[in-house]
């Protein structure tokens, strides 16, 4: 699936999703974007059988385990109905892939540690939680973290 952004200051702002058919994936993506537009930066998650909305900026990392997507804030963990690649499309630009099954919010990273084997570990502000960064994505996460800091 490609993502294309067209900047044109003369046109009305709109989001167009072009697809061959309305597949379950496209349907979920549409619902996720709709939710995002209606609720701003809020993300719909499930906790205790109820639906909750959390601010995307509260998320420290999200990962997939046993076909479920788990979203971590500093003090809690929720289940998201979206798949990881769908989350990547709607979460802010500060999020980066840390491994094939994990994305991290680089704006929340307070420490990056790299082991001799090349595997990294990211620590986050305001929480003892840590997550691992695979060798393949370590440089990307580090560069994104520096870029996020320079923007602030």
């Amino acid at each position: 699936m490609k993502l294309r952004l067209e900047i044109d200051d003369s046109s009305e702002e709109e989001i167009v999703i072009r697809a061959k058919s309305l597949t379950p994936e496209i349907s979920r993506l549409t619902e996720g974007v709709q939710d995002l537009l209606e609720r701003g930066n809020a993300l719909s998650v499930r906790s205790g059988g109820a639906e909750r909305f959390i601010n995307a900026n509260e998320i420290v990392f999200a990962e997939v385990m046993a076909s479920k997507t788990y979203v971590h804030t500093a003090n809690d963990v929720f289940v998201s109905p979206l798949r990881l690649h769908e989350l990547e499309l709607i979460l802010p630009r500060s999020f980066a892939k840390a491994s094939k099954s994990c994305i991290v919010n680089t704006a929340k990273i307070c420490s990056l540690l790299r082991s001799p084997t090349g595997v990294g570990e990211a620590g986050f502000y305001g929480t003892v939680k840590k997550t691992y960064i695979s060798r393949m994505y370590y440089k990307i996460v580090r560069d994104k973290t520096e870029e996020t800091r320079s923007i602030k």
């Binding site: 906790s47 205790g48 059988g49 990962e63 385990m65 046993a66 479920k68 788990y70 971590h72 809690d76 963990v77 929720f78 289940v79 840590k130």
Partner: peptide, 29 residues
């Protein structure tokens, strides 16, 4: 990483581990 449902009355078991496991609890309410 392992996720255990706090709502599940069966408890949870971590066994035969030679690595580094992080355990989280969901549905804590």
């Amino acid at each position: 990483t392992l996720y255990f449902d706090a709502n599940d009355p069966g408890g949870c078991v971590v066994s035969d581990n030679v690595g580094n496991i992080h355990v989280y609890f969901i549905n804590k309410e």
